[in-house]
């Protein structure tokens, strides 16, 4: 059963990812990216991490993709012409990427992991959010604070970057 769902999510995710790269219209790309991110959230559920799935939906689909769509709408780019679509070295690039994937897949299928594998313990499965939250606020409190400060810097930086200079009109 789990396998069937894994293949459904994986196939939709990969098809949507390919559509993001090949579609001409940036709005279609953004919508396909939303589909792909939702499938990734479903895969987090399969990996018994519901908190991650919720975060993925909130942050990526809710915030990041809305930012993307707003930018596409504000800039009013529209559909691309054939000349502007891809680089001239696209075939060489695709060949290199396929070679990269073959090497990575070979490593992943041939490599062995010596430590014992298995799922999460019962406690993590039953109280996922509680366990993750406790780890975030005790063991990982310093990186947590650093990341929150980084978000503040990004917020201020984004505002400063798009702010109009005094007196100039645009």
């Amino acid at each position: 059963m789990e396998q069937i769902f894994f293949y459904i999510f994986a196939v939709i995710a990969v098809v949507a990812a390919v559509s993001v790269v090949v579609s001409r219209n940036p709005v279609h790309s953004a919508l396909f990216l939303i589909v792909c991110l939702l499938q990734v959230a479903a895969i987090f559920v399969l990996l018994r991490a519901p908190f991650l799935a919720a975060t993925q939906v909130f942050v990526y689909v809710g915030a990041v993709m809305v930012l993307f769509l707003f930018t596409v709408l504000v800039l009013d780019i529209g559909r691309e012409t054939v000349v502007e679509y891809m680089h001239s070295h696209a075939f060489a690039a695709v060949g290199a990427v396929v070679a990269l994937f073959v090497v990575l897949a070979y490593i992943a299928s041939r490599g062995t992991i010596t430590v014992p594998q298995g799922g999460f313990s019962e406690e993590v499965l039953a109280k996922n959010v509680e366990v993750v939250g406790r780890a975030l606020f005790t063991k990982y409190i310093f990186p947590f604070e650093v990341v929150s400060f980084l978000l503040l810097i990004a917020l201020v930086g984004a505002i400063v970057l798009v702010m109009n200079e005094k007196g100039s009109k645009s």
Binding site: A10, A13, V20, V21, S29, C36, E84, A90, V94, A105
Partner: peptide
Amino acid sequence: ILSFLLFSIGVAGVLIRRNIIIMLMSMEL
């Protein structure tokens, strides 16, 4: 394998597209 497949598609998107918004989306991939 799924992760590597999505990674390769993302790298391909950054390499072959000229639109900088699509490149940012591929980085999200």
